[in-house]
């Protein structure tokens, strides 16, 4: 799985890193970054999909096939 954050779109809402701190963290200036964790687990897949769903900016992209 790959998780990508579009920093142009990211509005710094914090919804991903506060609701899913296992996978995301607050980076510089409030934008989101993906933590260096093993992404290929069911738990991380769930965090990624849920975070992408609630992101108010639509800035999180999950590619499950990779």
């Amino acid at each position: 799985m790959q998780v990508r954050i579009d920093l142009e779109k990211c509005c710094m809402s914090g919804e991903c890193y506060y609701n899913h701190p296992e996978l995301f963290a607050m980076g510089d200036e409030g934008a989101s970054v993906v933590k260096p964790v093993d992404l290929d687990t069911d738990e991380m897949r769930r965090h990624a999909v849920q975070a992408a769903e609630v992101c108010p900016a639509g800035a999180i992209f999950v590619d499950e096939g990779v």
């Binding site: 509005c11 710094m12 809402s13 914090g14 919804e15 890193y17 506060y18 607050m26 200036e29 409030g30 934008a31």
Partner: peptide, 19 residues
Amino acid sequence: NRSGRYKDGLPGHLGFGIG
């Protein structure tokens, strides 16, 4: 924003809390 951070670089009010 829940994060209290904004693209315009301005501080927000704290009235809803943060985090």
